[in-house]
Simulated assay, not measured.
Amino acid sequence: MAAKKSEITRDKIVSMYMKYRLENNDKPKSVYQFAKTNGFDETEFYNFFGTIESVEKEIFKMFLENTIELIQKDPSYETYDMRSKMLSFYFTFFELLSANRSYVVMSLKEHQNQLKNLMQLSNLRIGFKNYITEIITDEVRTQHEKFQNFQEKAIQETSWIQLLMTLKFWLDDESPAFEKTDIYIEKSVKATFELMNIAPIESLIDFGKFIFKEKIYNK
């Protein structure tokens, strides 16, 4: 009696795709080749994805989804203020990226044209901006209702830029256990929230000194 064929799922396709990239140091030439190599029918692929590129976008979206799922399992999470939620998100997100660093570095450094690399992050961007909207607190929101939509979009965009800058720092980080990225996260999030609260700029100066030291003296 023939063994029952394993059911193909979104997660299995993503896992197989990451494994293929790492083992072959290249993308599959076609959906047909990828499916045949992994022992399933091409039509099963299209139940979840339209193209190979859509798998790549889904991977980074799944990093986001897994991060949010993990941090929300902490019973204390709902009591956190926005800054604490951001720190929790960042540390968990980059812990997941570090666990998959070989794939992430390969995919985000594939093209010399950075815009092509960043196209993989389009689904991540949408999900992250939605997450930011969910954690914006009344303490952060302006009291003027007519400015709230503008403020929300501004916080979304600046938070996305901050995430991209942190991702770039992490990609270049050669410190043990990426400890410099942890310092970067702490200082950048602190500086961002003090700026939002129009607080003193000592944290911004401290963060600036850290970046200057890393980029100038450690060349």
Rank of each mutant, 00 (worst) to 15 (best):
E179P: 09
N123A: 06
N113T: 01
K187N: 12
I132K: 07
T181H: 04
S107V: 05
E186Q: 15
T133K: 15
I183T: 08
Q148C: 12
A154C: 12
T158E: 11
F150I: 13
E134M: 14
S175M: 03
T92N: 09
K180Y: 11
F93A: 01
L96W: 05
I126H: 10
I183C: 06
I185E: 06
F147R: 11
M106N: 11
L87S: 08
N123W: 10
Q114A: 02
K146T: 09
Q156C: 05
M106F: 06
S107G: 02
S98E: 10
L121I: 10
K129R: 15
M165I: 00
L163S: 04
D172Y: 02
T92Y: 02
T181G: 02
N100E: 07
L163A: 04
N149Y: 13
K85M: 12
T158R: 08
T166R: 10
E145D: 14
L167T: 06
F93C: 02
W170Y: 13
Y131A: 10
N117I: 01
L163N: 03
I135L: 13
N117E: 02
K129A: 07
K129E: 13
V105E: 04
T133I: 14
N149V: 05
K109G: 01
K153W: 06
K153C: 04
L124G: 08
K180L: 14
E145R: 13
F147M: 11
L163Y: 03
Q114W: 03
Q112V: 01
I135R: 12
F94E: 03
S159W: 05
L108G: 01
T92A: 09
K116E: 07
N130P: 13
S122H: 09
W170A: 09
I183M: 10
Q148K: 15
D182N: 07
K85C: 07
N123K: 10
W160C: 03
T133V: 14
L163H: 06
F89R: 06
A177G: 03
N100R: 05
